[in-house]
């Protein structure tokens, strides 16, 4: 609701305030205020204060939260198109990934959320995800057999871990440290900054850089809120989102380098397994896409992109 001409927008997310993606959202708030000449004010609630990523998306649909930042993986249960990002080895390299996210394909997927009450504004880079484990290093997919691996709350993330031989267990991010420590799961998978900043390395001493997926984060706005904004406010919000996206890529690159150095310094054993066995194990996931032709088409277009 408005008071004295300014509109407060509540943005909730699950990361700690030290995380580079949080800093990008702070920047987003500053830019939105600037571009809207002070009519929009973004209030950030970090650290799952207002719920996990899945719960926050529901609150956008309900209309009590204005915005949130979630992993594209969690979006899949709400908007099927996002499932394409959970396909392993989808991108050839970092440049291919950046090009796809900036392209027509990227914005098509962001738009797809509209009919589900959650409109995407911009992608934030989230690097590549790899396995980290408590007791057993992962050299080949065979090492995953019999291990419980925490996955994001997404069907394709679960299918991927199963295809590699692991046993997938969806658990909210904020509960993961305890789950690892208590042995509810034997390992998890994430990008270097998240592995480092969550301090999961205090429990997991092996990080196997198989880089199976590169699932971006998405900044979402509730259509309840979007529909009430004036045209210039929408433009201001979109512009601020794009600028924060550019800013975030710089932050991310340096955060990744720093996280890898710090992980090595605290004694995490970093493994660099060959990727061919992993890629071969997940091949059936692409063959199984016949059931979801929309995602299959998207993945073909992405693979075909130069």
């Amino acid at each position: 609701r408005e008071d004295s001409g300014t509109r407060r927008i509540k943005l909730a997310h699950g990361l700690a305030t030290s995380h580079p993606v949080h800093q990008a959202m702070v920047y987003f708030g500053e830019r939105a205020e600037l571009h809207s000449k002070g009519t929009l004010r973004v209030e950030i609630h970090p650290s799952e204060q207002l719920g996990t990523e899945r719960e926050a998306i529901e609150l956008l649909q309900i209309g009590s939260l204005g915005m949130t930042k979630v992993s594209a993986s969690v979006m899949e249960s709400f908007v099927p198109e996002y499932g394409v990002f959970s396909l392993p080895y989808l991108f050839r390299d970092d440049r291919h990934r950046a090009a796809v996210l900036d392209s027509e394909i990227g914005s098509e997927i962001l738009q797809a959320g509209r009919s589900y009450g959650v409109r995407g504004l911009v992608y934030y880079d989230a690097g590549s995800r790899s396995f980290y484990t408590r007791d057993r290093p992962i050299h080949t997919p065979a090492d995953l057999i019999g291990l419980k691996i925490r996955t994001q709350e997404s069907p394709s993330a679960i299918r991927m871990v199963r295809a590699l031989g692991g046993s997938a267990t969806p658990i909210a991010w904020g509960e993961l440290y305890t789950a690892l420590q208590q042995g509810v799961v034997d390992g998890a998978e994430n990008n270097p900054p998240s592995f480092y900043l969550s301090r999961h390395y205090e429990v997991c001493k092996f990080y196997s850089l198989d880089e199976h997926t590169a699932v971006p984060d998405v900044l979402l706005v509730s259509t309840h809120l979007w529909d009430r904004l004036t045209a210039s406010e929408r433009e201001a919000l979109q512009q601020a989102a794009l600028e924060s996206g550019q800013f975030q890529r710089e932050l991310w690159a340096s955060a990744t380098d720093e996280a890898m150095r710090s992980l090595e310094a605290v004694g995490v054993e970093i493994l660099r397994p060959g990727k061919s066995l992993f890629a071969a194990s997940v091949e059936p996931l692409y063959e199984g896409l016949s059931g979801s032709p929309g995602v299959a088409r998207l993945s073909e277009r992405i693979k075909a992109m130069r």
Binding site: G51, E55, E58, L59, I62, G63, S64, T178, V184
Partner: peptide, 23 residues
């Protein structure tokens, strides 16, 4: 601070998700 219907739905969601924790 919210429409009544939105407030009710939000509280229902918070109650259900409040129980959805493995701890």
């Amino acid at each position: 601070s919210l429409d009544t219907d939105v407030a009710l739905t939000t509280l229902a969601q918070r109650m259900a998700t409040g129980l959805d924790r493995f701890t």
